[in-house]
C-alpha cells in the first residue's frame, strides 16, 4: 500500500477522499486542512479518517510515514509547499494550476513521468479533452485543436472564478504539449441553468488531408472506453462527426474538422452528479497516485 495524505479540505480534497478510500492500493492517512470547522474535515471525521487543521505542519511531523501527497489547495499554496515536500522526499500530485511538475494525463503520458517528484493534473477541462485530442493525433495530423468546456456555475469554486485565465492558458498549452496538436485553444463557459447542467466538453480538431475517418473514430471510441475505466460517467454524447470547411485555423487551412461531443457525469461523492468537472480531476488523481505509488514500491501493491 502507498501511504498518502490529502492537503486541502475544500470541494476537490473532500471528493478525492471518497475516491482514495475506494482504492485498493492507496492508504489514506489523513485529510488535512486549515479550518477545523470545514465541512470536509467533519465528513472525514465522521467516516473514521484522521483529520488535522494544522496544514503543512502535519505533513512535516508525519513525513516518515507518508509517500504521497495530493495537493488540493491552491496554486499559490502549492508553490510554497512543493519545496518542503521535495526536501522530505514525498511525491506530490498537484491538483492546482501551479504547474511545478510535468502535466500528466492518464492513458496519454502518465508512463513517461512515473519517477517525477511532482506531477500536475492541469485542469478539469484538460483531463476531459486531452485524451481525445491525443487519440485523434494518433490517427491523423492535427495542426489545430480547440476545446470548449462548460461547467455548471455552482460547481466552479471561487478559485476557478477568480483565475479563469489559468484554466484557458494551462489547458491550451496541454492540448499542444500532451495532446500533440500543432496549436491548441481552450475556452471555458459557466452555465447557471437550474437544474444544473452536466459538465460538457466539445473537442474540435482540424485534420490535415490524408486521414482515414474510420481510424479516427476508432481511436476516439477506444480512448473514451479507457477514460471510463476511471471516470465511469465519461461518455460520447453523439457519434463523432466530420464537417467540411475550409477552415482557416491558426495552424493553417484545413478542409475538415472532426467534432467530438462529450458529457461527464460525476460519481456524486461530494458534490452532485452534475459536477463531473470535480470527478474527472479527482478520479485522474487517484489513477496517477496508484501508478506513482506502484512505481515507488517496485510494483508491489
Amino acid at each position: 500500500m502507498t501511504a498518502c495524505v490529502i492537503m486541502g479540505s475544500g470541494n476537490i480534497g473532500t471528493d478525492l477522499m471518497y475516491k482514495v478510500l475506494r482504492s485498493y492500493t492507496l492508504d489514506l492517512r489523513a485529510l488535512v486542512g486549515i479550518d477545523p470547522d470545514s465541512e470536509g474535515l467533519h465528513r472525514a471525521a465522521d467516516m473514521g479518517v484522521d483529520t488535522s487543521a494544522s496544514g503543512v505542519k502535519w505533513v512535516i511531523d508525519n513525513a516518515d510515514s507518508i509517500n504521497l501527497v495530493f495537493e488540493a489547495t491552491s496554486a499559490g499554496i502549492h508553490r510554497s509547499h512543493a519545496p518542503e515536500y521535495e526536501r522530505l522526499g514525498i511525491t506530490a500530485i498537484d491538483l492546482t494550476p501551479a504547474r511545478i511538475g510535468p502535466s500528466v494525463v492518464p492513458g496519454v503520458n502518465l508512463k513517461d513521468h512515473l519517477e517525477a517528484p511532482n506531477v500536475n493534473l492541469i485542469t478539469c477541462g484538460g483531463q476531459a479533452t486531452t485524451p481525445i485530442v491525443a487519440a485523434i493525433c494518433r490517427a491523423a495530423s492535427v495542426p489545430y485543436a480547440e476545446i470548449i468546456s462548460t461547467v455548471a456555475s455552482n460547481s466552479a469554486g471561487p478559485g476557478t472564478r477568480a483565475n479563469i485565465d489559468e484554466f484557458t492558458e494551462t489547458t491550451s498549452a496541454c492540448l499542444e504539449e500532451v495532446g500533440g496538436a500543432g496549436i491548441g485553444k481552450a475556452i471555458m463557459i459557466l452555465n447557471p441553468a437550474d437544474p444544473p447542467i452536466m459538465m460538457r466538453n466539445t473537442v474540435y480538431c482540424g485534420l490535415a488531408d490524408g486521414y482515414d475517418p474510420e481510424r479516427v473514430v476508432e481511436s476516439i471510441v477506444q480512448t473514451v472506453d479507457n477514460v471510463r475505466t476511471y471516470v465511469p460517467g465519461y461518455q460520447l454524447k453523439r457519434a463523432p462527426v466530420f464537417e467540411n470547411g475550409p477552415f482557416a485555423t491558426p495552424g493553417g487551412v484545413v478542409q475538415t474538422r472532426v467534432v467530438v461531443l462529450l458529457e461527464v457525469s460525476g460519481a456524486a461523492d461530494f458534490l452532485p452528479a452534475y459536477a463531473g468537472n470535480l470527478d474527472i480531476m479527482t478520479a485522474a488523481a487517484v489513477r496517477v497516485g496508484e501508478a506513482l505509488g506502484a512505481a515507488r514500491t517496485g510494483g508491489r501493491t
Binding site: I148, I189, I197, L261
Partner: peptide, 21 residues
Amino acid sequence: RRGIVGGQEDMIIDVALELRQ
C-alpha cells in the same frame, strides 16, 4: 429550453444531431 448561454455555440451541433437522430 436547455438554458444554453452565450459562448456555447458547440451545443448547436449537439442539438442539430439530436434532432436529426
